[in-house]
Design a protein around this nucleic acid. Sequence first.
RNA 1: GAGGUUGUAGCUCAGUAGGUUAGAGCAUCAGAUUGUGGUUCUGAGGGUCGAGGGUUCGAGCCCCUUUAGCCUCCCCA
Length: 468
Amino acid sequence: MSKPSIPQGTRDFSPLVVQRRQYILNTLKNIFEIYGFQPIETPAMENLSTLTGKYGEEGDRLIFKILNNGLHEQTDERKILRFKEWEKMQNQAYSSTEITERALRYDLTIPFARYVVMNQNDIALPFRRYQMQPVWRADRPQKGRYREFWQCDADVVGSNSLINEAELFCIYQSAFEAFKVPVNIKINSRKILAGLADLCGIPNQLTDLTIALDKLDKIGWDGVMAELTTRNIPTEHFYIIADIINNTKNITDNTKIILVLKDFFKSSSIGSAGVQELETALNYYSQLANNKKITNNITIDVTLARGLNYYTGIIVEVVCTHPQVKMGSIGGGGRYDDLTGLFGLKGISGVGVSFGIDRIYDVIEELQLFPTHVETGTQALILNFGGENETYSLQILQQLRNAKIRAEIYPEASKFDKQMKYANKRGITYILLPGDEERKNNKVSLKNFVTSTQELVTIEECIAAITL
RNA sequence: GAGGUUGUAGCUCAGUAGGUUAGAGCAUCAGAUUGUGGUUCUGAGGGUCGAGGGUUCGAGCCCCUUUAGCCUCCCCA
């Protein structure tokens, strides 16, 4: 018999890990709800046509496709056609709706856009929703990258106001504040990048420009220049690009960066619009954040690009700044002006942020920042002495649970030693010993495994002691 | 899609130069211990050395093929 295994890039989660993940999810859920966001859920699989073409060429490749059923059937003309497609696919890289019409969800944003279009008559715009569900990508797994992972998204659709951006910045602040994870929230605008392409006279190569620029902190300026060259961007424009980087990179005061950018983009209307957006959003943000204790930075980073090509306005990305942590972005988002337009509903603008909770987990773990109270295991174990004592034990068990104490009984009257070892391994603090003597006196021996103390108490006293 | 690296007990890993019967720690089970866990002591079970082929008198070790995990690039959370 071969050893069981799980698919590459997926993981099992043991109790402690699940409890910690739930702590992260609950923290985010509480914050989302404080900001007035409502939960929705969408199916694990979507029609493939809903997903293709939305994530760029590379993204399409990484969509997990689901094989249609009944591909071998050849009972009628339609099925014979499908069977031929299936044979074709086995011999070469080929795909068609005859073979796959469904796929696993790649992110939460596109399904949300689809949801908004389908439910447009029932939802009140502006619609604020959050969603916490797994997504799947056929990427090659490596550190901090999985094939199945969870995203937690909060989006607002149906509003152009930059108050929304500011609120989402606040959500990031509140969340990482709660997790005690030091982060830098980098912001930029796609319009600034478009303005840069404008100034370089290469508006058609916006994507090439941004992809290269995005790698600056990874491969350095020399690397970026090489990348720009391979992407056929004329070298005579490099000085403009270098200019904007050098004039903004070491400034921490966003107000000053905005002044620089205003001057830089004075001849580009789209670039100016981008700068104006950043200024307005940051202004709203400072009003909202006025009374908050801010521990994390928000900084304008003109090299921030982000891959998903549906973004049109302000974009944001969160990176952990702790020197011990080597991790890519742990959250990101931005504004997309016409996402629902892809599904036939024009003129609805949306903006959203995403939390990569698997990576956030890894960071919190690495920095040992998980609070101990997230462990919600059993508080009290009743040892089983069998016979009448077992009956007595079951009564006590109910009383404990009625008092909201997480309790269980050892289900077999096994040897004492075995039951004790079980309690120890489970990390249960309180052990109740309802033996003959205890039962006759309507009491119970309560042992505290942490302090190794034991006392004979009534059930009420026992409950009081555990509840403390 | 490209490259690197590792597969030996449930887990983490040793395994010398190719040489008899493949080891350790942890874990599991049993006992010391039928109402007192963690520590300790004793014992036991557990392996087609990832798979297939080759070289050799002889392969866990050398060669080839293949497969899976991990890591890097691409891209991303």
